[in-house]
Design a protein around this nucleic acid. Structure first.
Length: 479
RNA sequence: CGAGGUGUAGCGCAGUUUGGUAGCGCGCUUGGUUCGGGACCAAGAGGUCGUGGGUUCAAGUCCCGUCACCUCGACCA
């Protein structure tokens, strides 16, 4: 881990702010390819399989909390975007517009959705009449388009895949509760599935979603000490309800505006996985989302019985629900070792004449590359299942230890600057003024990440202006 | 949009200064030998040199235009 971090620092120094190894790894491991249009990506099967596993895990959690999936159109009338003042201002500069069909100009421009609050708001105003229609708990899996100026595979692409939850509640309290519940789902998912510890908390006014009353985020620390906003959950108040005239008749017989939440995570999570766990050898995928959890590499394939044994083991593991792949290609074993380590496959199982003779398989863990040990063939399924769990736990522990050692509590601007320039997050008190946030951005290229729910103070003065502090907040350089 | 850079085989590049047969590495194909940490031998396939025009007996190379992409600064899941 330490070695990987040194490597990242070194590369980061050479190539500016963004580590080149990241792009190299993404391309070499065949997660994605560049698309023909700048800033778009083609998700290759290996990368898409990773996304499918993330989807499946998340979707199960959404269902378990009472949500249902639906789908809304990709094209949105431009006028919809205009209905919520802050929302237009936030998104208009980066939306793609459809202006023509063939040679005919459209009477009204269409927006390729950058997010779906507006079209969903429009539909919800038709769907919701009574308090009996609430709460309305809906999620959408979709693609969105945001034309950012600079793009990075997974971290910031012109088009990306995500899920967006859009809920409607009769009361403010219920909507706020939902906002925090889903933030909690994201945190739990990150910890138990992606093996990434997240800082959860509220974003500053400056950093919040255009049109929201409050935005909460999960923030992950990458191995170069930078922050990646990995998911957000917004409390929308009644802003969109008023803009789209969503009203319900309450028990007391009066019309009321409901309160809403929206929340989303995207393919950016794949970027988080790469940069929170990966190293100079390539990917290090957390077992519960790895497209291939264990790869079987037959040794001396031409010798009698080797292939047959490897196939038998593959079938046994697959039957037990382990995502297993047998590589029968005629590449040399050494080549295969490097290939699957680069691709981040958590476990490698070697099976050769020597193993068969001894009734074992030779196994190696990606998170502890180089170490080899043996497992008895007669109990391989539980052996592999235990190892997958252990790999997950040690990956989480390593990420947490790294993060803990890269957070510094700071009292003044010098300490804050030193911390973020030393690839750390800074935790400080803050007066809450936009001016101080702007100043920190200007001086150190660091932005506020979020304000943790545990607001027990680490001082009483703002780190920047020295006035009485209102909040405890994390700062960091971010992707 | 401001500054800089690059376009030559699937990928990475040399060749451009000084115009003269289109090259190298990896990958790919075929055959053989190998196989416990990125194997080796042999034979092959693969090119409108980003693009349009000009100069010249002759242009990847020189001149003019144009397009695309990359890096760095202002916006962002």
């Amino acid at each position: 881990m330490a070695k990987a971090n040194e490597f990242v620092k070194e590369i980061a120094d050479i190539h500016g702010d963004f580590p080149q190894w990241y792009t190299d790894v993404v391309l070499k491991t065949q997660l994605v390819d560049y698309g023909p249009v700048k800033g778009t990506m083609v998700m290759r099967p290996y990368g898409y399989a990773l996304w499918e596993n993330i989807q499946r895990e998340l979707d199960g959690r959404f269902k378990a909390t009472g949500h249902r999936n639906a789908y809304f159109p990709m094209l949105i009338p431009y006028s919809f975007l205009m209905k919520e003042a802050e929302h237009v201002e936030g998104f208009a500069p980066e939306v793609a517009l459809v202006t023509h069909i063939g040679d005919n100009e459209l009477p009204e421009k269409l927006v390729v959705r950058p997010t779906s609050e507006t079209i969903i708001g429009h539909m919800y105003s038709k769907w919701i009449q009574s308090y009996r229609d609430l709460p309305l708990l809906i999620n959408q899996w979709a693609n969105v388009v945001r034309w950012e100026k600079t793009t990075r595979p997974f971290l910031r692409t012109s088009e990306f895949l995500w899920q967006e939850g859009h809920t409607v509640h009769a009361t403010r309290e219920e909507a706020e509760e939902e906002t925090l519940r889903m933030l909690g789902v994201y945190e739990e998912f990150s910890r138990n599935v992606l093996a990434i510890p997240m800082f959860t908390g509220r974003k500053s006014e400056k950093e919040k979603f255009a049109g929201a009353d409050a935005t909460y985020s999960i923030e992950a620390m990458m191995l170069d000490g930078k922050s990646l906003q990995s998911g957000t959950s917004h409390y929308l108040g009644d802003n969109f309800a008023k803009a789209f005239d969503i009203r319900f008749l309450d028990k007391d017989g009066s019309h009321k505006y409901p309160y809403q939440s929206s929340w989303g995570v995207s393919t950016r999570l794949i970027g988080a996985v790469i940069m929170a766990h990966g190293d100079e050898r390539g990917l290090k995928l957390p077992p519960y989302v790895a497209p291939v959890q264990a790869v079987i590499i037959p040794i001396a394939m031409h010798k009698a019985g080797v292939i047959e044994k490897a196939e038998e083991i593959a079938a046994t593991l697959a039957k037990a629900g382990i995502r297993v792949e047998l590589d029968k290609s005629d590449n040399s074993p050494g080549w295969k070792f490097n290939e699957y380590e680069m691709k981040g496959v958590p476990l490698r199982i070697e099976i050769g004449p020597r193993d068969i003779e001894n009734g074992v398989a030779t196994v190696s863990r990606r998170d502890k590359a180089g170490e080899k040990f043996t497992l008895p063939l007669n109990d391989l399924v539980s052996g592999i299942q235990n190892l997958l769990r252990e790999v997950h736990e040690s990956m989480y522990a390593a990420a947490l230890a790294f993060r803990d050692s890269h957070v510094k509590t700071v009292k003044n601007m010098k300490e804050l600057g030193d911390a973020v320039n030393d690839n750390c997050f800074a935790l400080s008190m803050w007066c809450g003024d936009r001016g101080c946030e702007d100043k920190i951005k200007e001086e150190f290229q660091a932005t506020s990440r979020n304000m943790p729910f545990d607001q027990s103070p680490v001082g009483d003065k703002c780190v920047c202006c020295g006035k009485k502090a209102k909040y405890k907040i994390y700062w960091g350089k971010a992707y």
